[in-house]
Each structure stands twice: as C-alpha cells, then as structure tokens.
Nucleic acid binder design. Structure first.
Lengths: 354, 354
DNA sequence: TATTAGCACTCTTGACCGCCGAGTGCTAAC
DNA sequence: GTTAGCACTCGGCGGTCAAGAGTGCTAATA
C-alpha cells in the first residue's frame, strides 16, 4: 500500500514535471501564458485538457506556476524556473559554427583588456542579450612595479604595474617638489621592497611601515610610502566589469515599462549591485544562475543573470555572464556562458601551454 | 513707397518672430502643440486668435512651424528651433548655486581622467539629460616616454606616457625573446630620440626610420622601432569620449518609440558618429548646436546636441556637451554648457595660474 | 480512483460608435 | 490690417458588444 502510494505519487510528480517542462519551454518560446489545450496537444502525454487543468492547479498550489488572470493560461514563477533549470532542462549543445566564432574572436589578441571586451561582445551577440565580463579582482593582483613622473612641480603622474600585466595610473598632488632623480629613487625603493606582493598585502604593509617611518623620523621613506599608499589605496577596492549589448535588452517587451528598464540600466552603470552578484559567483564551480528576485536586487527582479567563473593559469580570476529577461532560452544560454568561460580561460593563459 | 513696404514687412516679421519665440518657449515647456488661443492670451501682443492664425499660416509657409494634424496647434520645425536659438532666445543666467556645484565638483581633483568624468556627470545632473566630454585628441598629444616590461618570453607589456599625463598601455607579441636590459636599452633609445614629438609626427618619423634601419641592416634598431610603432599606431587614431546620464533620456516621452531610443543608445556606444560631430565643433569658438536632423545622422534626428570646446593651457583640447531631445530648454542648457566648458578649462590647467 | 466531457463563468481584446473639445481655414465685416 | 463668426476636421475618451481563450467545477466514465 505504502509502496504503491509512493510510486503513484512519484508518477504524478514525474508527469507534472514533464508538463512543467513543456509549459516553460513553450512560454520561453512564445512569451504568452500557456493554456491546457496547448499543453494537451504538445506535451506528448496524451492527456485531456481537463486533466492538465487539474495538474496545473496542483503546480499552482506548489508555487511553480501562476496565472496572470482568471481566464489566461499559466506562466512559470521564479520557483518554477528554478526547478526547470536545476533538474528539467535539456541543454542544447552549442553548434560548431558558434564555437568557431568564439574561438576566432578570442584567440586573436593577447591583451587582456581586449580579450575581456571581445568576450563580452561575443556573449552579447551569441545570446542577443547583454554580455558582461568581470575584470580580474584587484585584491588578488600582485604588485610588480611603480613609477613616478613629474607633471608640474607638485603634481605627479604615478604608474602602477601588476604582474598580470595591468597598468593603473593616477595623478596625485604632493606637498613638496621632488627632483626627477629623487622620484626614481623612491620608485626603486618601493619596487625592491614590495614587488611580488598582493595588492592587499602591500596595502597592509604600507600602512604599518608608514607608521614606523614616521616614528623613526625617516622623512624620505615616509614620503615615498605615502605616495605609494595614495596610488594603491584606490586600486585595492572595487573590481570592475565590462558590458556589451545592453541595448539588446530594449527589444524584449518583457521590459516594456520604461522605468523598469531605466532602473536596470542605471544599475549597470552604478555597477556595485552587479559586482556583488558577480563576486558571489566567483566561488561557485561552474555555471550559476540568478533568476528574477533571487538576486535580491530590485533593479534585477525582471531579469536573470547567468554566470560562470573563468581561470587564468588555473586560478579563478573573474566571472563572466549574460543578463536577460527571466524568460530566456536557458537551454541555449547556459552552454554558451559555460563554453565562453572555458575558452576565455585558455585564451588568458599567460604562458602558452601548447 | 518702397520704404514703407519694407518697414511694414519688417514689423510683420518682428511680430511673427515674437510669436515664434513665445510658441517655442511654450512648446518646450509643455510639449504640446500650441494653438492660436493660447498664443493670443500669453504672447503679450494683444492680438486676436484669428490674427495669430494668419501669422501662423505665414510661419508655416516659411517652414518654421508645422502642425501634426489639421486641428492641432503648431509645433516648431528644426528651422524654427534654429531661428530661435540663433536670434530669439533669451539665455537664462545660471544660478549661483549651480555654479558653486560645478566649481566644487571640478576643483576637487587633479587627475584629468577624473575631471572628465566629473564634468560629464555634472552636465548630466544639471541638465537632466546626457552629458558627454571628449577626451583630448590623441594626435595632438606629445610623446614623453615609453617602457617595455616582459610578461612572458615573447610577450611584452608596453607603457606609453604623454606629456599631458595620459598613460596608454598595450600587450604586444614579439618575434624573439629579449632580456630585461635589452628592453631598457630600447626604451632609452626611443625616449631620447622621440620625446617631445606629437604622436602624429612620431608616427611619421617611426615609419621613415624603420625603413632606414632595415636598409642599414641595423636589426636592433629596427626591432625597437617596430615595437614602438605597434604601440603608437593604435593610439594615434580615434579620439574618445566619456558619457554620463544616458538613462535620463529615457524619461522624455519624445523618445517613446523604443527602437528610436535604441538606435540612439547604440550610436553612443558605437561612438564614431558622435565623435565626428564633436570633432567638427572643436574648431568653433563657443557654444554650438546641432538640432535634430542637422547633425546628419539618423540616430540623432530626434535629438539636439549642445557643445562647447574647452582649453588646456589656452589651446583647444577637447569638446564637451549634452544630448537631449530637440525640445529642450535651450535657454538654460546653453549657459550650462558654456560655463562648464570654461570651468573645466581652468580646472585642467597643468600649471597653476594663481 | 484517475480521467474526461460538458458547462457556466471570467477575463481580455479589438472593433465600432458617438460625443466633446480644441483648433483650423475661410469669409465677411469692421 | 484686424477681427468675429462659422463650418469643418481630427484626436481622444468612454461605452458597448461580441469573439476567443481559458478556467473551475461537477458529473459521468473506464
């Protein structure tokens, strides 16, 4: 009896899941609420609309679907999508042509800046949504060298280079004028002393040793350290990302209300909400999804974000992904994001493996 | 007789102009076609609606106004706006508060990159439209020094610094591996040889002398020159600009058709059309306007662009401006752009005048 | 007991209609 | 040259109506 009940419940669930799957696929395709008739016709399950209506009522009780109004079909809820992407979806392998496109797009340059930009453009063009690639985290970057160039008497151009090949520059004002050779001396000292440290570690040591130098009345040293501090302090905070194809999102009538769309775009330029999400998905193993309100940010509550981390020299270096309407073709998008991350990883390798 | 006719025609014109002015001011305020009744009431000219209708018919013949349909009021055409901004508009001086806002916003940093960004943000927030600031033209920049850092055996990080304090970096692949000291030697040679030249001049000489070095079989020299060429070649082309507040444009129902707005946004990321316009207005003396189709670009045909050049050390260095709907408050926007350009000029000065 | 047919009900959508208000162009009078 | 008057036009708004799609419920069926 018990056994039978369980198995019967299970079969109900399987059938319901199958129906949910078809419903979502259908809804993703057409963007319109799916009714019982349609489902009866296209589910391959040979059930009458009436039966399907019963199942739908169950799914609605479970919070997996909802109907916009009494006499409309059903549309998936966020939980519905979640179940779909977690257990139901059958991913579509990426066509060879698109893989080729990705490869040629990514293997044509060695400059990380250009690579990141290409990746984000490719993501956007392959998915017809907005692509984004996070730039390697500052904190994890390691200091390589610094340089000071005088612009005017009390104004210096500072250039900071990381081992990874990123260059950051900043203009700073200093209290007194230094000669060119003094500046070179400062730079040499800092370079010898700190080269190879992570930015974060360097920051900590800088602060500590600045204290020390002040106590020792070592003016020169203190000055040099202060200058360095001025440069790396802003660099240490804040990751950044590059985005492409934002305007693609304007085509989805899911965002027909302008203010919603505006909110979204603003959060793209504001960046910190998105960065926080990307930051979180750095730790995840493979592709990760934030569906609708799952992200926790109001601006994104009509969107889904699909991300995957990428590596440089087999260490996680950043995250890339796409943003689109909740109703997106997950079966196509997930593989695209996945593969792009892999390809970017190999393209970013500093020493050639082959 | 002739005299009388002329003077009479003139007075008609003056009256018509006055009416055109009021009409445009009104239309800018409300965004709705202005009818003869309204004009009769608010023009201050004590004319009956019927008379005004006659004048309107004349203005329509002259192509200065048009009516969207038979029984609507009139709205200005591009030529109408043009006449308005050229001869009719009475500019509203900027309130002291806003000037203060600009000053504190611009005098807080010395870094040109940050300055440019602040300026564009300020423009956007003061006008509630999109602000943009062009970054000093590359060709006019002068070369100061170059540096080569090895990333891996055949991959170099190149850093190029201009006298103006801009830093450009790029990763390049080279044919053979060089030692660190060789790279330093290359850099020294280039720095001594070319420092102080404009990028354009440097480019020309590089090409010429590369030829020469090849003929002389001076391998080292040729290699060094080729590397330099790889760096400055991409830098020499293409100016760039920074934009802020694009989403402000989404509030104007003038851009209610999404595809029009999308076209506009795309042309912002595409950049070259806008750059071409900005480029053109570098030569102009003060504030310059492109109204609607005047710009010649389809994406901008619903917009106006208000620009003004700014100086660095009393040489024109770039252009800034705002983009908004054709129906914008020119009387307020023109002074804002004008003053921002002036303030940015003084903020950008490399040696302090005071 | 699960499934299905049937039916009444609900809700959206688009078409059609008529009316009102705003505004015009024209003509004739001032 | 200006104005009053009048006929006309057009967009917008609200209401009604029918069609279509889909639901929930109940009772019959396998």
């Amino acid at each position: 009896m018990t056994v039978k009940k369980v198995s019967s419940e299970l079969s109900v669930n399987e059938r319901a899941q199958q129906l949910l799957k078809v419903l979502i696929e259908r809804y993703i395709q057409d963007g319109e609420p799916v009714g019982s008739r349609t489902l009866s016709r296209d589910s391959g399950l040979d059930l009458s609309p009436a039966t399907i209506r019963n199942v739908m009522a169950d799914l609605e009780d479970l919070g997996l679907v909802s109907s916009p109004h009494t006499s409309a079909g059903r549309i998936p809820t966020v939980s519905g999508y979640r179940m779909f992407v977690d257990t139901l979806v059958t991913l579509k392998p990426l066509e060879a042509g698109k893989i080729k496109q990705l490869e040629t797009g990514l293997y044509s340059s060695a400059d990380p800046k250009i690579l990141v930009e290409s990746a984000s453009k490719l993501l956007s063009s392959l998915t017809h949504m907005a692509g984004l690639v996070m730039i390697p985290r500052r904190k994890q970057l390691t200091f390589r060298q610094i340089e000071f160039l005088p612009l005017s008497s009390k104004r210096l151009l500072t250039i900071l280079v990381t081992t990874e090949g990123e260059v950051h520059n900043r203009v700073i004002d200093v209290r007194k004028a230094y000669t060119a050779s003094q500046l070179v001396q400062f730079a040499n000292m800092l370079n010898q002393h700190y080269s190879g440290l992570s930015m974060e570690a360097m920051h900590k040591r800088l602060v500590r040793e600045m204290e020390q130098a002040r106590k020792d009345m070592n003016q020169i040293m203190a000055q040099a350290l202060e200058m360095a501090e001025q440069v790396i302090d802003p660099e240490i905070r804040g990751d950044d990302y590059v985005m492409a194809g934002q305007t693609n999102l304007m085509d989805f009538n899911d965002f027909s209300q302008m203010n919603k769309l505006r909110e979204l775009f603003d959060s793209f330029t504001e960046k910190n909400e998105i960065l926080h999400l990307l930051d979180g998905s750095m730790l995840a193993e493979g592709v990760q999804l934030f569906i609708g309100e799952e992200s926790g940010y109001k601006a994104l509550d009509q969107c889904s974000l699909v991300t995957a981390p990428y590596q440089v020299d087999s260490k996680v270096a950043g995250v890339l992904g796409v943003v689109g309407p909740t109703r997106m073709a997950y079966d196509r998008v997930i593989p695209i994001v996945d593969i792009t991350a892999r390809l970017l990883s190999t393209a970013m390798q500093t020493r050639k493996a082959k």
